[in-house]
Design a protein around this nucleic acid. Structure first.
Ligand SMILES: [Mn+2]
Ligand SMILES: [Mn+2]
Ligand SMILES: [Zn+2]
Ligand SMILES: [Zn+2]
Lengths: 146, 146
DNA sequence: AATCTAAATGAGACTTATTTGCACTTGTGT
DNA sequence: ACACAAGTGCAAATAAGTCTCATTTAGATT
């Protein structure tokens, strides 16, 4: 039920030294329930639609706190706004295929590619901390539609 | 000499169906002369400093046209502004290592990584058009300074 | 259960990057 | 040289995100 789920989310927040406010619980629940990569305004509007009272400022501030605690991660597809997605594990990682036609986002993880990245860093005596790998193109459905 | 260089740049512009205006020539010359990844305002200020008369609007509009013609490419390091760099060949491509300490950008090209990308796309029945791969971290000089 | 207080929120002003409308130039084909 | 579409400058408009400050609230303390 929602009540139990709320309690679980509150616990998660508290475990990360964050006050478990209604706004934060609602935001986290929203991201938990979807696979999409929402931007701040989409999150704001979705919460309003669910009769949750939140302000845009709080959406931005909560996201900042959640990202800092690795409960949410920030992705930038280069279109001028940041997107957010729930991340399960602190060390979970994946990259993205983004369909330029329909906007669909496909997630992937390729160990060989990650290994190549480390090798490139070594070659340049560079210590990596994070990376982003985004492949833009056309998804199968959109290609068929054509 | 500069005069010959200007002529060459005008030719390039005309070959791409772009009017060879002083502003565009100056902009292209500026990007040609550097390896840096400038943002629009840095370009605007650099041109002003060289006594070129340009407006910010024209910098943005010219960059748009040049990007469309693949004479310049746009890169987004996720810090809220677009950067631009001259691209030589239509099909030239490289990825980036970005030092989070000093901002230095190191370019690289790794054939194996590019191959892995194609293989990932195949697995997902995805037709790629472009991609961006940015590795953030600490460069050798910054690591030593610590 | 009532009280306390630092942290969080809401409303709206503000900032920064980029875009746009419009009157005025300028590059280029004739 | 001329004509005129394309390009430019300026200032106003957007758009994403941040900040200030008065008010509320979570969670600790009596
Ligand atoms: Mn994702
Ligand atoms: Mn580059
Ligand atoms: Zn698609
Ligand atoms: Zn560095």
């Amino acid at each position: 039920m929602s009540a139990a789920e709320n309690q679980a989310l509150k616990k998660v927040l508290r475990e990360h030294e964050l006050k478990a406010t209604n706004q934060r619980v609602a935001l986290l629940k929203l991201l938990d329930a979807t696979n999409e990569h929402f931007d701040a305004d989409e999150i704001y509007l979705a919460l309003r639609q669910k009769q949750k009272n939140v302000s845009r400022a709080t959406v931005y501030r909560s996201l900042e706190a959640l990202v800092e605690q690795h409960l949410v991660s920030r992705v930038d597809f280069g279109d001028g706004r940041m997107r957010f997605e729930r991340c399960q594990d602190e060390d979970e990682h994946h990259d993205h295929l983004i369909c330029e036609k329909c906007g669909q986002v496909i997630e992937f993880f390729n160990l060989e590619m990650e290994a190549q990245q480390l090798s490139v860093c070594e070659e340049h005596d560079f210590t990596p901390s994070t990376h982003t790998m985004h492949i833009f193109g056309t998804c199968a459905e959109c290609r068929k539609k054509n």
